[in-house]
Design a protein around this nucleic acid. Sequence first.
DNA 1: CTCGATGCAAAGGCTTTGCAGAAAC
DNA 2: GTTTCTGCAAAGCCTTTGCATCGAG
Lengths: 127, 127
Amino acid sequence: MARPSRIALQIVDTMTAGARHAWTLEQLATDLHQRGVAADFSSVYRAVERLLGERRLVRIAIDDGAARFELAGAHHDHVRCVRCAALAAIPCVVDPAALAAAAASTGYTVTTHCVVLDGVCPACRQH
Amino acid sequence: MARPSRIALQIVDTMTAGARHAWTLEQLATDLHQRGVAADFSSVYRAVERLLGERRLVRIAIDDGAARFELAGAHHDHVRCVRCAALAAIPCVVDPAALAAAAASTGYTVTTHCVVLDGVCPACRQH
DNA sequence: CTCGATGCAAAGGCTTTGCAGAAAC
DNA sequence: GTTTCTGCAAAGCCTTTGCATCGAG
């Protein structure tokens, strides 16, 4: 079975600290280094893969060049600035009734969802 | 300025024909070949890039390994089967009021959105 | 001693770009 | 003739895997 993984633990700690809403693998690796934790990129990759399997993390579909992950259980949607790529977390904006209707009409059993709003952040709007 | 692009025209035609909801570059290249249109992958890439710039296509954030595109103007959300990766289109499930509230609280000016529901399709559920 | 975790390096997959030739104007 | 579109090939970027080593039990 799984043995305690130094790296997986640190990843969860870093994410729980909450300096960010959605991490890329590279951001996780960097954050770990800043915490003084040596971690190869592939080890971060495998630790995240493991945490996904344990359902402690979820992968979110923010399509900006690199896969992004966040802690499971703290579901929220996201807004992304199309100019500077800044990300902000927002409360869920899905209408439960509409979701139920969509599930019924397609026959799918819907378990989770991922919403990304596109827009312009306050800082970029001023320029 | 831009000259008529044989490939861009065919891409729009193919997508308008509507055999699918969301195309990858490879699917577009394949569909074009089946229509008897020779098109290199990079040409498809550039034609799509151009159509995106003209706002005739939009890129959607379905995070399944390859970028996906659909015709602009026909906005809808998607459900994806987590087992077989099947995709289905659904009416928009975003609550306008919640979206407005999110925009207000973050200060973002929201222009578009992309929703992907995860679930299990009817076919996969039977197994 | 045994098995899983880790680092290093290489392989993969999709995306993007450089360049020369063909096509449109 | 000049500008744009295409095809071909190579380069890039991120993700994934193979393998030997290290370390916990």
